[in-house]
Amino acid sequence: MRVGLFLTCLNDTLFPGAGKAVVQVLERLGHEVVFPPAQTCCGQAHFNTGYRRECVPLARKFAKDFAGLDHVVSPSASCVAMVRENYRELVGESPPVYEFSEFLVDVLGVTDVGAAFPHRVTYHPTCHGLRLLDLGDRPTALLRAVRGLRLVDLPDATHCCGFGGTFALKNADTSVAMGTDKARNVLGTGAEVLAAVDNSCLMHIGGLLSRWRSGTRVLHVAEILAAT
């Protein structure tokens, strides 16, 4: 299958590993990945902060950049949700976007991608993956199939980490208070790695874990699935 990669501006800038991992897993499964190089940003930050007018040209550009692709896959639940939930109303069309774990399980019908990752991992279901995309147990089903991986439950897993896009800056104190509770729960599991399907949330939780010199790493689910 020919699959377009929607990297997202955040991954493009700060988290190159997630994009590489998506490419590696899909190619390992025998699919061709296309990366439209003109892609920039889906406009989620603009839309969600109340700058709808500024968002419209970005949505139009997105639709143009990914035109002609039947399947567009992204390592970001919240950006996929942005396109799926809002583009039809914004620009009259909704490109066929899939969150990575959703694409693997629903479209490719795969849960075992042949990965090995001998570490103790806990999983945070990010809010837009959980509530807007209804990812359910797709990401954890994929993680459970990874050889050597021990998945441990995260207490209060469904509680928001406090990132919230521009919320993290506009309401930084509340954001950090929420993130602190989340990061403490992560440390309580004794996991070496916190995994999620959104690097934005991981940037927030991981930013705290790093500042605390905790030694616990954050990884995108795709990076674990790419490990062999």
């Binding site: 990297l7 800038t13 700060l14 190159p16 800056l169 950090v176 940037m203 991981g206 705290l208 790093s210």
Partner: peptide, 23 residues
């Protein structure tokens, strides 16, 4: 600037080779 509020309590990642260079 506005990003100051991020680094008051949180680190940022220091990415290696960019995706596009790799690609």
């Amino acid at each position: 600037g506005p990003w100051r509020r991020w680094t008051e309590a949180r680190d940022l990642p220091t990415p290696g080779e960019s995706f596009r260079d790799w690609w």
